[in-house]
Amino acid sequence: MADKTLKRYFDVLEISPDASVLEIRNAYLLLKKLYSTDSVVISPIADEFSKKERREILLQVEEAFDKLMENLKNKQNERHHRIRHQPSASVPAGEEDEDVSYSGLELKKIREKLGVPLFEVSLDTKIRMELLKSIEHEKFDVLPPEVYLRGHLINYANYLMLNPKKVAGDYMARYESWKGGKKGGS
């Protein structure tokens, strides 16, 4: 991606081009929340600052974040391949997490690395905080039926910018083996 285009994306998120992943993410979350809710800073100008304008800003913010994340992933892939002396471009973007298996603990670690508190995930994803906690701690016995659980996992994975299919697949496999173990034991 051209540097100039990248710079524009950083500008949209109002951060400097040397911002860390965490800073990019924080800026994105702040702006997303700011322009999608009628907060105390919006309401005094709500009559002149139309919903349409705000939606347009949101779209730009989403685009900037997606592109910057994509760019980072590509960079990471390149580095990954250089270290392993593998030809580049053999792994499509978004599939770089093949060698990680997503457990509850892994999700928790990623969330903490991003500096996002649980309550915030809960507010943004509308998944109850207790449930999120149970997912992270793999309290399988209190988790909802599988079809709902899968939905929540996809939702949470999307929020953490992870491959939702892989997260749900890995996690459900762990869930299944627990269930199997329980049956076998009883």
């Binding site: 702040l30 700011l34 100008i45 600052f49 800003i57």
Partner: peptide, 14 residues
């Protein structure tokens, strides 16, 4: 503190 960042953003973007 986020109000500071938010106001800044609105002044810039709006």
């Amino acid at each position: 503190i986020l109000i500071g960042s938010s106001m800044k953003s609105i002044f810039n973007k709006y």
